[in-house]
Design a protein around this nucleic acid. Structure first.
Lengths: 183, 183
DNA sequence: ACCTGAACACCGTTCAAGT
DNA sequence: ACCTGAACACCGTTCAAGT
């Protein structure tokens, strides 16, 4: 990669980070290019579409989520607390950009695309926590990591676009947790 | 209202119904105007923005939802079945147009706007069903109709934009029901 | 009153022309 | 190789001009 190309690539990412934080993941890509000080064509050369750009931006999401899952699984706290606080972490991590939760939740069904791979990573992290709880025998029959991610992702998406506060969101997550745990 | 205005008004609604069904609630309004055989200005004269158009289109949602709630409350079936099948009805009713569930769920917090009023109607219907179950003493402490609508609406929004099938959606709703019912 | 449709400021995306 | 920026086909929205 040529030096100027590398520099533009980095500038575009930095600009995208800014613009998406301010205006959400649907913001104008021309605006991103302008903010990065490059022509629109340069942006499209490096990132063929919006998803490609988001993809690099969410690069280390999955790692952080898996890390939170490992900690949650090892915490030894009461099952309900483990679930709720891990759900809160999950929501926080996928909500860094407005519009993000909806994208990742919609990608849970798909496969092959980069975003679907990330969604798969989230499912794995979820399976880590659920697996630990299942060893303790506290989960209902048929609890499925993908379905749990869908539920939590749905709540995250609503929290994102209705701007719910933390308490309200936690109540929603608590109900989901109760629905997963054995009575 | 002049005869030609009335005619155009009706044509626009019919065209919007078609276009929104095909392409979702975000479809081009110029396309709606074209399909209705009127100039774009005529559309904006009758409906100042997209929300105003959707508003008329969802006119009888609330009535149908309240009706389903009344039937569910009176059905005398087991509480879990009542909840799940009423949730399924609710999801079906708010999902007539792609993008609808997201809009109505986001409006649950607001008040004053026409869409917020409709969201309020949905909450009332929800309260009907929950009230009946509460008389039977089968609900957990602190179950709130607004929060229940948020949960079900979140699932509806995800089902809508990830194109989940009925069985998958019902499983998600069942978990919510379990989270609301006393162990 | 009401309608029309050209016009404006945007958007995403492309591609000839430059270095 | 890589970048630029004018250009294209769209979008929502407005408003002078017509009937």
């Amino acid at each position: 990669m040529r030096a100027d190309a590398r520099r533009n690539y980095d500038r575009i990412l930095a600009a995208a980070e800014d613009v998406f934080s301010e205006q959400g993941t649907g913001a104008s890509l021309n605006e991103v290019a302008k903010r990065a000080g490059v022509g629109p064509g340069t942006l499209y050369r490096h990132f063929p579409d919006r998803e490609a750009l988001l993809d690099v931006l969410m690069k280390d999401w999955v790692d952080r989520i898996q890390q939170a899952a490992d900690e949650a699984a090892a915490s030894g706290r009461p099952p309900r607390d483990v679930l709720i606080s891990w759900f809160e972490d999950l929501v926080a991590h996928i909500s860094v950009h407005h519009g993000g939760p909806g994208r990742i939740t919609a990608a849970l069904a798909k496969s092959g695309t980069p975003i679907a791979d990330k969604a798969g990573g989230v499912v794995n992290a979820c399976a880590t926590v659920l697996g630990r709880l299942n060893e303790q025998g506290v989960l209902r029959e048929g609890v499925d990591p993908v379905q749990v991610c869908r539920l939590v992702g749905s709540v995250a998406a609503t929290a994102d676009n209705a701007q719910l506060d933390k308490d309200t969101t936690r109540q929603l997550l608590a109900t989901i947790a109760d629905g997963l745990l054995l009575p």
